[in-house]
Design a protein around this nucleic acid. Sequence first.
DNA 1: CGCGCGTCTGCTCATGTGAGCAGAGTGCGC
DNA 2: GCGCACTCTGCTCACATGAGCAGACGCGCG
Lengths: 335, 335
Amino acid sequence: MVPAETAAANELLAVRAAELYYEENKTQDEIGAILRVTRWKVGRLLAQARERGIIRIEIVHPRARRLALERDLTARFGLKDAVVVPAPADDVELQARVSEAAADYLVSHRPVPRLLGVSWGRTLHQVAEALPSGWSTAVNVVQINGGVSLSKRPGTAASTAVMIAQKAGGQATLLPSPAILERLETKKAIEGDRTVGGVLGMARGASAYLYSAGVADTSSVHVDSGYLTAADIARLVERGAVGDVIGRYITADGTIADPELDARTLGLGLEELRNAKTSILVIGGEPKHAVARAIVTHGLCSVLVTDEHTARALLGHPDDHDLESATTASREDAS
Amino acid sequence: MVPAETAAANELLAVRAAELYYEENKTQDEIGAILRVTRWKVGRLLAQARERGIIRIEIVHPRARRLALERDLTARFGLKDAVVVPAPADDVELQARVSEAAADYLVSHRPVPRLLGVSWGRTLHQVAEALPSGWSTAVNVVQINGGVSLSKRPGTAASTAVMIAQKAGGQATLLPSPAILERLETKKAIEGDRTVGGVLGMARGASAYLYSAGVADTSSVHVDSGYLTAADIARLVERGAVGDVIGRYITADGTIADPELDARTLGLGLEELRNAKTSILVIGGEPKHAVARAIVTHGLCSVLVTDEHTARALLGHPDDHDLESATTASREDAS
DNA sequence: CGCGCGTCTGCTCATGTGAGCAGAGTGCGC
DNA sequence: GCGCACTCTGCTCACATGAGCAGACGCGCG
């Protein structure tokens, strides 16, 4: 027998076997009878078909997860955990899915944090909304960065923290301060205030942190809230800022983009996140790939909740799961 | 427990179970331990997930077939057999796949025909090329419709039949006549010729027929070959012609579009195809849906080899394999 | 020509899995 | 409040399946 012919014939047999097994629900024995091979050979053909990626099994569900990517992420970046959800085409939907996933993660996370430090923003608010009432018992919540909005939608920052706490039957402690102060002295003064200082101290002692990150562009909540102007953002971008983590703008190499601005930013520092046992980053969508990369590659989070595209971008995988396996199969043929 | 909540919780569990089972290759027992349910429940969750279409299994291979569609086609149109291949995006590729499938079918078809009647055309030529040498032993081949080309590519009709016969180590008998004669008298005269008459008689006795069909437009081989002009085609279309079967133009209701023209067309009649035990139609591609429908719905073929889009078009299914299974599942639920 | 190597084949056996069944729990109507 | 019907649960058992193994086969090398 010429090997090439045998291989081709086997591949065809494998395809037929796969069809009968997976589409017609026949037993390997029956398939053997049809294809005139022993049932053991059928088993081997099916194993081959699976290996070569001829059989593709996909779990189609909004709540599905991409366990393979999760494993890759934890391995590559030394994370404690990762949650990757399939990405719907619609970006609004995607944010919702990622937030839901974060809520799910929070609910099932053990040990239950006694005190949870949270940031604020659109994503965090969605996470809060996605949490079921009674998601845990008596988890107290503390804000980890300043959140008094200067302009529209006052109180979203506060309501996020409060909602998370309420739904767990716990108390929320707010950080009664703007995110960014205009003058360094003001920031120092506020920090020195007993209440604010106390909250910051409490925040440092949280057993887990939950936060998202923003992009360094004019769509940022900081611009919306009036803390920064478009010009400020432009300057930050010039200095290499890719986005903000709990109010602090960082560059692609995970360092503070503008130390002067950062000094005026009130809240937990990056080191506290880096050293925390559990710091959960919730982030999704194409625009945030750069920030996500900066955060994840520099150890600022220990748990990542994201969508599959972001995950693939972080891993440098091609964003194509179809051709990939197919080409792999033919490569193996050639070898 | 509120039913709605239970159902949702179960669905989520089912998704998790499916992930662990199909993506992580865990045993149902292990999954039970992880999800804190008995292994029997895991089994049931997986069964549910399969029913509801949460788990989608696809066989990704150029030589794959769509057995479900094949079954539907044979049932709906009372066919003896059907072969449906997945449709690649590329139309050239699609024709190649369908032809290959036809060749495969011919090779494995039992009983082996002693004498095979074939038509000619682009598709049939591809089928001939796709046949492996020695695909059968001593199958003789006879042309079933006139095939002397008037213009370019002389002999393709002949070479198709000869190639099929040669590769099986058999003899080819050609029909030495044009497909369509200009005058009825000429046609009758040629038909009366001993050679031609003999070949036609032989063709009527073939144990199986293999043919394709053409579309009623100017891309037709009949125009290419000079038998018909663009004007002729236009007139045929006006009379409701959708395409030709072994040279005879038919309408959507399976009748001859132009009896006068048909009388001048030399070769087997439609009735011979209809009454044959085995008449294999090889047809694929969007433009041919109408002809295919005319042929299949009016019993002119007993075996259909086609692509999945054509199959779905014939069945009136939406060309969407996602929702389909989901709805079927819920139907079963409801019953 | 004979030997050894690697691959493929058919098998035994342990394990994984689905059908079917009895009992518990749950909601609904009387 | 009581029973009835229904679903859901945990189980037994038979069956389907994959791991592992010894022998057969084909192939190339000396």
